[in-house]
Nucleic acid binder design. Structure first.
Lengths: 160, 160
DNA sequence: CGCAAATAAGCAATAAACTAGCATTTTGCC
DNA sequence: GGCAAAATGCTAGTTTATTGCTTATTTGCG
């Protein structure tokens, strides 16, 4: 694949981040090239894995998911086997929307979505705290969402 | 708009979550109706705000964003004015990808992305800790991503 | 239950977009 | 400067999006 991204590639990524359903024709117009090479570039970016996928953001509240919460988990043992075992468990939990292993006082941070508080608490008590090797669990219920741009800040040169 | 979502609407949302760039024809085929009513349903879902938008997920690492970290901030004062002031600041910081106000020991959780560790540390020292009303700041660098499905778990009936 | 109104689906036709093939231009390197 | 590789733009055929209209289905009420 291509070694380095040129400015048109960056523009393409920027536009696609903002609107993942833009037509290729419109995308081409915005970045200043004709449609065929634009489509080829997008395909190449997908092929290279730079584009991980296309998603639709939904309004959880309206869909009946009242609760969003962060769960921080610390484990007793952190051998690679222990970590992998816990990760496998995390992947199985449908309430967990995103999860990272982190450095610091806790080992994992998870963002969870649940239908209501009861469902969430059941999840914590029944599933999380009772999981093998879990040492401590701390939860933080979200009160409101300030920002949600699951995107890379492509056009902020001051941080490049 | 429509009072209640029927099973076809749910299927539409589920399919769109998984692939935000699916064609309407293919979407219609998957949910078992013809293309025009399918498109009308999607438009109605957008109109109602159930669909918040379409995004493209990028590979931050490949794009040169080495660091993803969680930042937890506690404020001195939590009057509504103080909170709104801090939120306005958060929205201005391009490194912050998502942020929630939470209950518990800290007031805000932010997921941040930066080009490198130095950029991130500068951000914390120069921007976050020096912001008015900030009491304490704790950071957790992510070591690896376990899961990233910024989606609602639509087809897990056991949690409905 | 049965009718009427409202709602949604499907069909057909048109406009727009996607995409492959090919000629041309640009880029990179000797 | 000159060649080879890579990328672009054009053209055209196919697929998709979109709209208007008709038919079918559902909903609400007597």
């Amino acid at each position: 694949m291509k070694a380095r991204l040129d400015s048109i590639d960056w523009q393409i990524l920027k536009e696609l981040q903002g609107d993942g359903r833009i037509t290729n024709v419109e995308l081409a117009r915005r970045v200043g090239i004709s449609a065929p090479p634009c489509l080829r570039r997008v395909r190449a970016l997908e092929e290279a894995g730079l584009i991980r996928g296309y998603r639709t953001l939904l309004d959880e509240k309206q869909l009946g998911y009242e609760v969003t919460a962060f769960v921080m988990v610390g484990l007793h043992n952190q051998t690679e086997n222990d970590l992998v075992a816990f990760e496998a468990q995390v992947k199985e939990w449908p309430l967990v929307r995103e999860s990272y292993m982190v450095s610091g006082e806790v080992d994992f941070i998870m963002r969870c979505t649940a239908k209501d508080l009861e469902t969430f608490q059941n999840f914590i008590i029944r599933d999380v705290t009772s999981t093998k090797n879990v040492d401590h669990v701390r939860t933080a219920l979200t009160i409101r969402r300030i920002k949600d741009e699951p995107n890379v800040p492509i056009d902020k040169p001051e941080y490049f």
